[in-house]
């Protein structure tokens, strides 16, 4: 039960993009089309779940055991970079259609701050393995939700009459602000 609440909390209440400001770059960059946004969300969710498990293991079984916490950041980013590489090779081998669908989004995930942020938050909040995993999946689903919603709005915006200076990033940020405002209505749903 506690895990289900945790999951819901990371999908809507503590949404990674709209309330924790993680993963803004892909959120602004890859939200022009719904299908691309969905593929990106899928890839991120995939990598986030694996990162949650691996970074937890590395942190608790290796770094903490040998008192190497100072190396945390360097190790986490290396783990993520190699994981993304590994996932890319794996998907290419096992499912070429999925690989084509994810395309260039896979390598870009390395510099998505949602992934490193996830690894850091799990270590900061001292979650156990299962909680960490749930946070990873929930965070990924929440990211996908925000990205797909945004892409839907932006597809409509193309036909709208936006003032010249606000076109592009300006209006996207205003829309994100309104979305964040409506998502903040969920605050207090789960402690």
């Amino acid at each position: 039960m506690e895990l289900i609440l945790l999951f819901i909390s990371f999908v809507i209440v503590n949404n990674f993009v709209l309330s924790q400001f993680l993963g803004i770059c892909p959120f602004l960059g890859v939200s022009q089309r719904i299908d691309a946004a969905f593929s990106m969300g899928l890839a991120v969710t995939f990598v986030m779940s694996i990162t949650a498990a691996v970074s937890w293991a590395v942190n608790n079984l290796i770094l903490k055991k040998f008192g190497l916490e100072i190396l945390e950041y360097v190790v986490f980013i290396l783990v993520i970079a190699s994981l993304v590489q590994l996932v890319e090779m794996f998907v290419k081998k096992v499912s070429p259609p999925l690989y084509r669908a994810l395309g260039i989004y896979l390598p870009l995930i390395t510099t998505n701050c949602a992934i490193l942020g996830l690894a850091l938050l799990i270590s900061l909040k001292e979650y156990n393995f299962l909680q960490g995993l749930v946070m990873g999946i929930g965070g990924g689903v929440g990211f996908t939700l925000a990205l797909v919603l945004m892409a839907g709005i932006r597809e409509e915006l193309e036909a709208a009459d936006v003032p010249e200076p606000m076109k592009g990033a300006g209006i996207t940020l205003i829309v994100s602000g309104i979305m964040a405002l409506s998502f903040s209505g969920f605050a207090g749903l789960i402690k």
């Binding site: 200076p165 606000m166 076109k167 602000g177």
Partner: peptide
């Protein structure tokens, strides 16, 4: 000070920059 304020302020800043540049 919450998330929506950050998005809105930056959006307006970008718009203002666009006006100057235009």
């Amino acid at each position: 000070i919450m998330a929506p304020g950050a998005f809105l302020t930056l959006g307006i800043m970008l718009g203002a920059y666009g006006i100057f540049k235009g």
